[in-house]
Amino acid sequence: MPQYIIYFNQQWVGDHSEEWFRSRGPLANAVVEEIKAAGQYLFAGGLEEDGPIFSADATSGSVLFTDGPYVETKEWLGGLTVVDVPDEATARVWAGKIAEACGWPQEVRVIF
Rank of each mutant, 00 (worst) to 15 (best):
M1S: 08
Q3W: 00
Q3A: 03
N9Y: 14
V13P: 01
D15V: 10
D15Q: 13
H16Q: 14
H16P: 03
E18D: 12
E18W: 05
E19V: 11
W20P: 04
R22D: 14
L27H: 11
N29G: 12
N29D: 15
A30G: 08
E33G: 12
I35S: 12
K36S: 09
A37K: 15
A38I: 04
A38Y: 08
G39F: 10
G39R: 07
Q40K: 11
Q40P: 01
Q40N: 14
Y41G: 02
A44C: 13
A44W: 13
A44R: 07
A44L: 07
G45S: 13
G46H: 09
L47D: 02
E49S: 15
E49W: 03
E49F: 10
D50T: 14
G51E: 07
P52L: 11
I53Q: 08
I53K: 13
F54E: 11
A56N: 04
A56W: 03
D57I: 10
S60D: 09
S60F: 01
S62V: 14
L64N: 12
L64D: 10
F65G: 01
D67R: 12
G68H: 10
G68D: 09
P69V: 08
P69Q: 09
Y70G: 06
V71Y: 11
E72D: 13
K74Y: 01
K74L: 09
G79R: 05
L80P: 00
L80Q: 02
V82K: 02
V82M: 12
V82T: 07
V83W: 11
D84N: 15
D87T: 04
T90I: 08
T90H: 00
R92L: 11
V93Q: 05
W94M: 03
A95F: 08
E100D: 08
E100P: 00
A101I: 04
C102R: 11
G103F: 04
R109L: 01
V110H: 01
I111V: 10
